[in-house]
């Protein structure tokens, strides 16, 4: 590799970070706003929550992936605030250790923001992957929850049937697909909704089309549109202000496309030259 290319290979990523940082500091451009989603995903989530009865119980399967959680984090927080604003009681359960770590961090954040602790129940980590999900449908054993004892007793007595809806925060191995495959066939019908990063979109979109997922927020655009329409009232403090900024995302994507296109063009030029050399020979 020539010295010039080595310099670019070292400086290029650093330059990209600087450019993205500068773009992050610029004021938001209305023309790049992501809120104008028209595919009905945010409305579907809102409609599903609207159909829940008074004082609903919601089970949150929290198995986010640290590598993709940044994409869905503002939306997840708004969904939690939205549910609490609807007087829902929320129980958190995780099936992966990584998901458990993120769930603990989010519950600590809710605690710091003084969310009503009587409405939050921590069901902890269920081991066993798919078998753990099946076990969840047979019975739930809440641990010690000093602040939500009535909620814990109700869940212990009724099991998963106590819940009016299931929200799956996906990203890790056991995401919406696992819940649909292992839980949905074993329980009475309850709406299952999902919040996933874009990378899971090809996997979960068919479940929306078949109706197995009642609603899905699976792209930054869906998330932004949902956050723009959710009415959380006095629980605004639970919501994360802002989200992924469109301008740096756009710049980053253009750079990614440029890098991929450059690689393709270099290969094409090389192939053309070798063909030309062969013709000359």
């Amino acid at each position: 590799m020539s010295e010039r290319r080595v310099s670019w290979a070292l400086l290029g990523p650093g330059l990209l970070v600087v450019v993205l940082g500068a773009a992050w500091l610029l004021p938001e451009l209305p023309a790049l706003g992501l809120e104008a989603s028209d595919d009905g995903a945010p409305a579907g989530m809102g409609a599903t929550f609207d159909e829940l009865g008074p004082d609903p119980l919601v089970l949150v399967g929290f198995d986010a992936d640290i590598g993709t959680y940044a994409e869905v984090r503002p939306t997840v927080r708004t969904v939690m605030a939205d549910l609490l604003a609807r007087d829902a009681r929320i129980a958190f359960v995780s099936l992966t250790v990584e998901g458990r770590a993120v769930a603990l961090a989010e519950q600590a954040r809710l605690e710091r923001a003084e969310a009503n602790a009587n409405r939050l129940l921590d069901l902890g980590l269920i081991p066993g992957a798919e078998a753990g999900l099946v076990d969840l449908t047979k019975g739930i054993r809440p641990g010690e929850n000093p602040t939500a004892q009535a909620f814990a007793r109700e869940v212990a007595a009724t099991g998963i049937a106590a819940f009016d809806a299931i929200v799956v925060v996906g990203g890790n191995d056991l995401g919406p697909r696992s819940w649909i495959e292992q839980v949905a066939p074993r329980i009475e019908p309850v709406p299952i909704v999902a919040i996933t990063p874009s990378v899971l979109l090809p996997e979960v979109l068919p479940y929306v089309a078949s109706g197995q997922l009642a609603a899905l927020l699976g792209t930054p655009r869906d998330g932004a549109a949902y956050r723009a329409t959710a009415e959380v009232g006095p629980l605004e403090r639970l919501v994360e202000p802002g989200g992924p900024r469109p301008l740096p995302v756009l710049i980053g994507l253009l750079v990614a496309l440029g890098v991929m296109g450059q690689a393709l063009v270099v290969r094409l030029i090389g192939a053309t030259r070798s063909l030309g050399d062969r013709d000359d020979a």
């Binding site: 970070v17 993205l20 940082g21 992050w24 500091l25 590598g67 993709t68 940044a70 994409e71 984090r73 990063p197 874009s198 990378v199 979109l201 090809p202 930054p220 992924p244 900024r245 740096p248 995302v249 980053g252 994507l253 990614a256």
Partner: peptide, 25 residues
């Protein structure tokens, strides 16, 4: 299909990078 999936992955990872930049700033 894998290439299209890679596009989604690039988006997710890019947002992670931006989140870290946002955290620093």
């Amino acid at each position: 299909g894998i290439g299209a999936w890679l596009g989604y992955l690039v988006l997710s990872r890019l947002i992670l990078l931006l989140d870290r930049i946002g955290f620093l700033l």
